[in-house]
Design a protein around this nucleic acid. Structure first.
Lengths: 189, 189
DNA sequence: CCAACATGTAACCATGTGGTCACATATATT
DNA sequence: AATATATGTGACCACATGGTTACATGTTGG
């Protein structure tokens, strides 16, 4: 039998990630991870310090909004740049399943095991989305709409519709993007 | 020992509700309900048909947005009535813990047991929120903001802040209400 | 009154969970 | 080569889960 710690650590971590991405926070457990990795669960405790350590690893390695951090350097002073930023944000959110599941997780619990992960991912979010302090009402409107985007994205995993809107259609998401743009425009007039 | 089926059924149902309200969907299980009701779990199967039956009961009895259904009869043609409606909606959502936990539940799973409950509660939501088809972009903007309100309400159970906003402060929620109102105004100009 | 039935309980089952253990085997050090 | 250490495994533990069973006891109708 071959022995390669680095390889098994990678197997464990990858299994953990894919389990979280595919089946969500509820499915993430020591037994499930070990089984998926094809490895004894004892190793998860030894190499990572249990689930808590695995979450900490994710917090450190996690690239939750990396595509946005590149845009972050832009001015965000002009209306157009804010709109571009919003569009990039919704795109990133819709495509990054890992981020989605972490956001879902935050709606379920907040304990010792998850605290570090949430703290870190929230720092990322804060860094990215702390914008336009001038107009407070636009700020709150944008936060509501960002939150709405998160909500609808998470909801779309299990629901085909929200009120009258078909969540499976790309058109719907384009319309949400347009509504977001239009709101930004209206607040800047 | 006294025997009173109606009373024990009530005990079971009430325990189920309070468990859901206080600890959320994850905590709702046959064992926990029976323990809280101080009753043998066999009776839950006999009288309700298990957890599934309990959820069905909730779907039938549930008053998810009853305070809004009274407003529903209003015109919703004037800008002011839409704003009143929105304000009543956010208030209802923030106060009704049961509704909150059902909405949270919809972000976690959708199976045979929950299907009926979700179907019914969504019908309620649709009935209440299917408004203003004329302006599609306002419609989508409102849906985003409603979704955002739901998201932030659910999040506030475990998180004290969202980006720069303090979710424990009444002021913040007032500001969200104002942002919502202002958005409605701007779209109607 | 006593038989039939409704109501209620506790034990039990298989399964799954997180967590620990003693042990085996491969790799590295002396 | 012999020994020490790193890596890996499977059994085991206590506990919790949903679900079923056999049985006991209260209530009711003939």
């Amino acid at each position: 039998m071959k022995k390669d710690r680095a390889a098994t650590e990678a197997k464990i971590y990858e299994s953990f990630l894919s389990l979280l991405e595919e089946k969500g926070p509820q499915a993430v457990g020591i037994n499930a991870i070990a089984k998926k990795a094809g490895v004894s669960k004892e190793l998860i405790y030894r190499y990572f310090g249990g689930l808590q350590g695995l979450l900490l690893q994710l917090a450190k390695k996690g690239d939750f909004f990396k595509t946005l951090l590149t845009l972050q350097n832009n001015d965000l002073e002009t209306v157009e740049s804010v709109k571009d930023f919003a569009k990039a944000g919704t795109k990133e959110l819709r495509e990054n399943k890992l981020t989605q599941e972490i956001l879902r997780w935050q709606l379920l619990e907040n304990n010792d095991a998850t605290r570090d992960l949430f703290k870190f991912s929230n720092q990322q979010i804060d860094k990215v989305f702390s914008i336009s302090d001038k107009d407070s009402s636009l700020n709150h409107a944008l936060q509501l709409m960002i939150g709405g985007y998160v909500y609808l994205t998470l909801l779309s995993k299990f629901n085909k519709t929200f009120i009258t809107t078909d969540l499976t259609s790309q058109d719907s998401w384009d319309n949400f993007d347009k509504a977001l743009e239009k709101t930004i425009d209206l607040f800047n007039k």
